[in-house]
Amino acid sequence: MANAQYTFTSELWKWEARASRYFVSLPEAVSDEIEAMYGALAGGFGSLRVKVTVGGSRWSTSIFPDGKRATYVLPVKKPVRIAEGLADGDPVHIDLVIAS
């Protein structure tokens, strides 16, 4: 199975339980497709390995299912937020490849 690639824009949000953590929610249609195609390959906490590009920043991480939002969420670490000038509520253009 070829690794699927997704491109989308979504809002950066701060996790209320830990204000130092920021995420982007994947669009529902993207999350549904990823779950259908790759859900059986999920690791701990339902995570899936991904490669991400935001602007000039590229990194590998995992996406996680979020039952409250009914989508996968992508963590965006501080070095990426600083490098790309991102703040809470900003739209983020994301290129994401499933690495599982």
Results as ranks from 00 to 15, higher is better:
residue 12 L to W: 05
residue 32 D to G: 08
residue 49 R to K: 15
residue 21 R to Y: 12
residue 72 Y to F: 15
residue 75 P to D: 12
residue 90 D to V: 03
residue 26 L to P: 00
residue 98 I to R: 03
residue 34 I to A: 06
residue 85 G to F: 05
residue 12 L to T: 06
residue 29 A to W: 03
residue 41 L to A: 13
residue 95 D to F: 03
residue 68 K to M: 12
residue 80 V to R: 00
residue 7 T to Y: 07
residue 69 R to G: 04
residue 52 V to F: 00
residue 45 F to A: 10
residue 65 P to D: 11
residue 8 F to D: 06
residue 17 A to S: 14
residue 55 G to L: 04
residue 81 R to Q: 12
residue 38 Y to R: 10
residue 12 L to V: 09
residue 19 A to G: 15
residue 35 E to I: 01
residue 49 R to A: 14
residue 32 D to K: 15
residue 80 V to T: 12
residue 14 K to E: 15
residue 12 L to D: 05
residue 35 E to D: 13
residue 50 V to K: 00
residue 47 S to P: 01
residue 61 T to W: 06
residue 94 I to S: 01
residue 92 V to E: 08
residue 3 N to A: 10
residue 36 A to S: 15
residue 58 R to K: 10
residue 7 T to N: 13
residue 53 T to E: 10
residue 89 G to H: 07
residue 71 T to L: 08
residue 88 D to M: 10
residue 72 Y to V: 08
residue 98 I to F: 06
residue 98 I to W: 00
residue 78 K to G: 01
residue 81 R to I: 09
residue 15 W to Y: 13
residue 64 F to Q: 06
residue 47 S to G: 05
residue 73 V to N: 02
residue 10 S to P: 03
residue 3 N to W: 11
residue 35 E to N: 12
residue 50 V to Y: 06
residue 97 V to S: 05
residue 63 I to Q: 04
residue 13 W to R: 07
residue 41 L to S: 14
residue 6 Y to S: 07
residue 5 Q to E: 15
residue 95 D to N: 09
residue 85 G to A: 09
residue 39 G to P: 04
residue 20 S to G: 02
residue 15 W to D: 12
residue 78 K to I: 04
residue 78 K to L: 06
residue 7 T to W: 02
residue 44 G to T: 05
residue 95 D to Q: 13
residue 56 G to V: 10
residue 85 G to V: 07
residue 9 T to G: 09
residue 24 V to E: 02
residue 86 L to A: 08
residue 20 S to E: 13
residue 90 D to E: 09
residue 65 P to A: 11
residue 6 Y to N: 07
residue 15 W to K: 14
residue 100 S to D: 15
residue 13 W to P: 00
residue 46 G to I: 07
residue 4 A to L: 08
residue 41 L to N: 12
residue 82 I to A: 07
residue 96 L to Y: 03
residue 76 V to L: 11
residue 6 Y to L: 08
residue 91 P to T: 09
residue 27 P to Q: 11
residue 48 L to P: 00
residue 76 V to D: 03
